[in-house]
């Protein structure tokens, strides 16, 4: 099992009296190779869930194991290390660093993980998202779709167990968004586990399993029978 979450709760203490429960007991298993969408309205707790699954934050109670590692016992730096080896992030705003070329952005996780053959692997990752000819471009010289593809290359470069995409099409037009979804789907076909957070059903339709979250609880979790397989 890649992701094993048991009764996850997350409570934000806003002040000594006011606290907000963002997750109220989420139990979730995701196996390697799955393509999952986590759906929910804003405020449903899906972003909080993504942050915990992505080891960016820790749960208040419950347990979470990523690839057999219990993250609640890890400190900040160990979490950073875990992220750089196990997880690739794709964000809504791409989050490419402006003063680095596409290739330099892509190899950033390798740099922080201190891994070898950074250039070769970076070039390969860019090739996988069909962006080889843009390796030396600055982010502001790329279109939105190209920037997101570079970001996906960055998520791929360290060969992570899990790709976490937080609203990856949110800042793109429909066409570019569709291309990104197709790319994620093909990565999944190639064996990658992809977990996608979205609030739009038509985006979730690309995935194989849709988990719906509401008020901090999972309200629905089923295989996606009406998958847009024909779009692949």
């Amino acid at each position: 099992m890649l992701i094993e979450a048991r009764d996850l709760q997350k409570i934000y203490q806003l002040s000594s009296e006011v606290s907000v429960a963002a997750l109220r007991g989420v139990t979730l298993d995701i196996e390697s190779g799955e393509f999952v969408a986590i759906m929910g309205q804003s405020g449903s707790g899906k972003s909080t869930l993504m942050q915990i699954l992505g080891c960016l934050d820790k749960q208040s109670s419950g347990s979470y194991q990523l690839a057999g590692v219990d993250i609640s016992s890890l400190d900040d730096d160990s979490l950073a290390d875990l992220r750089s080896r196990k997880i690739g992030f794709v964000f809504q705003q791409f989050n490419l660093l402006p003063r680095m070329t596409a290739l330099e952005n892509v190899i950033l996780p390798l740099v922080y993980a201190g891994q070898a053959q950074q250039q070769t692997r970076g070039v390969a990752a860019l090739a996988a998202v069909e962006l080889s000819d843009r390796a030396d471009h600055w982010p502001n010289q790329l279109s939105g779709g190209q920037q997101q593809r570079a970001a996906i290359a960055r998520a791929l470069v360290n060969e992570p167990d899990l790709i976490l995409a937080d609203e990856p099409t949110g800042a793109l037009d429909t066409k570019a968004g569709g291309e990104i979804m197709s790319l994620l789907a093909s990565l999944n076909e190639a064996g990658k586990t992809v977990v996608l957070i979205t609030h739009e059903l038509y985006i979730a339709q690309y995935t194989k399993r849709i988990i719906t979250i509401q008020d901090g609880r999972i309200v629905n979790d089923e295989a996606n029978k009406s998958r847009k397989a024909e779009r692949l």
Binding site: R83, S84, Y112
Partner: peptide, 16 residues
């Protein structure tokens, strides 16, 4: 701030 967040997300440690 966002740059720092991104760097941390992809594995930068405090000392980095």
């Amino acid at each position: 701030t966002r740059e720092i967040g991104l760097r941390k997300a992809v594995g930068a440690k405090r000392k980095d």
